[in-house]
Amino acid sequence: MSSQTIRNFTLPLSEQEIVSLKCGDVVRISGTVYTARDAAHKRFVQALEKGEPLPIALQNAAIYYCGPTPTVQGEIIGSCGPTTSSRMDDYAPKLLESGVKVMIGKGKRSPAVNEAIKKHRAIYLAAIGGAGALYKHKVTSCECIAYEDLGCEAVHKLYIKDVELLVATDSHGESCLK
């Protein structure tokens, strides 16, 4: 992967930027993402169904499927690689409907999620599973903002800097994961 082929983007992505990205592109991303795993997704969706307010604004948001190791003294965050995205497949369409534009995780999505990505002109980016020590150095700030009782599954607001990711499902619903 030569550095010339990698384009740089800052979150939130504009619709024009999202549409320009194609499956198989490697991009370098900086900006704000929110961590959420199964338990946080469940709460998001329950809140949406009840019409209750959410702890984060979903419009144009980027969600990172990640439960980091605890932060130890002097560190910004612990190891923080992606978790398996398919576990969030039951919840993802509802979040896309509510404005989420970027999802970051690992592994293939269900046909229903890929269809919802297409419908809402969003994008799914694949991070490298098992590279948590590497990503730890790409996070410049980390703040727990909701569901602290969930421990590692709490929602954290992260600022990520220059993270190389693969466009795994593009806004046309095309997926390149096996």
């Binding site: 978790t83 599973g129 590279a131 948590g132």
Partner: peptide, 22 residues
Amino acid sequence: ALGQIVENDELAAAENAYACQD
């Protein structure tokens, strides 16, 4: 991807960082 994984594993060992958060 393999290059990123090797880099991660060497970095983890050098820094005594968890190779994976899981």
